[in-house]
């Protein structure tokens, strides 16, 4: 692919991912949230293919494929199923209104730009512009975990953070050594699975997956 075209594609993917993060902040339904996550992951996978193609690093294809399988299909599907099974309700409970969340997300994006700005000069990959975006996605993911009450939405926040992280990995170094990369990916999968296990246990024990009931351990 032409460098310019691939560059444009990459920028497009990255911007789309960020937009999906923002979108996730505005959703009020779990289903929407999961969809947003799945689409974001789809862009991530696409990005991996584009980078793999333009840099010739074939291991990124593998990564993209796994992302496609796990994050785009597997996890959202499993979660939707669980949500239905647990009667978790369709609403996303948030401690903050949508305008507030969006404003803070915007502020976080600005912060991400500010702090990554000096790094731009030091990284010489074609994807380096993505750094600020990936930082934004990470921060917004974390912010989502701060504002959302349900266990499932928190898990989605974590997964979105990880999307941002993978974006970052690709943007500044075209991916880490394959062993590491695959290992990291399976780790993430394991995390998702184990979080799922415990979310199940919690929902059985407390009859809800609203984490605001999990407040008994305190000083």
């Amino acid at each position: 692919m032409d460098v310019v075209i691939s560059g444009n594609l990459i920028d497009l993917c990255v911007v789309a991912m960020l937009l999906l993060s923002m979108l996730a902040m505005t959703t009020t339904r779990i289903a929407q949230l999961l969809n947003a996550f799945a689409v974001q992951s789809l862009f991530l996978a696409f990005l991996a293919f584009v980078v793999a193609d333009s840099t010739g690093r074939s291991e990124l294809y593998v990564l993209g494929a796994i992302t496609l399988a796990v994050k785009v299909a597997g996890i959202p599907w499993a979660m939707k199923n669980t949500a239905v099974r647990l009667h978790a309700g369709r609403e996303v409970d948030s401690t903050m209104g949508i305008p507030g969340s969006l404003l803070i997300s915007a502020a976080l994006i600005i912060v991400a730009y500010l702090v990554t700005e000096p790094l731009m000069a030091t990284v010489d990959t074609i994807t380096r512009n993505c750094l600020a975006m990936s930082m934004s996605v990470i921060l917004i993911g974390l912010f989502m975990m701060v504002t959302r009450r349900k266990a499932m939405t928190e898990a989605v926040g974590l997964l979105m953070m990880e999307n941002g992280l993978f974006l970052g990995i690709m943007s500044i170094s075209y991916g880490m050594p394959l062993v590491v990369e695959i290992g990291i990916f399976f780790d993430v999968l394991m995390v998702a699975v184990i979080i799922g296990i415990f979310a199940l246990r919690i929902s059985r024990a407390f009859d809800t997956i609203d984490t605001s009931v999990l407040r008994r351990l305190k000083e």
Binding site: T95, L108, V111, L114, V115, E117, P118, L139, L142, F143, M145, V146, T147, R148, R149, E154, T211, S212, L214, R215, R216, L217, K218, E219
Partner: peptide
């Protein structure tokens, strides 16, 4: 002691705040 309020969301909040503060400070 009141910071340890049992609410996981606040705990994430602490991490976010520290992270943002430090990043801005380093910048």
């Amino acid at each position: 002691g009141r910071t340890q309020n049992g609410n996981i969301q606040s705990y994430f909040g602490y991490i976010l705040i520290v992270l943002v503060t430090l990043l801005v400070a380093v910048r």
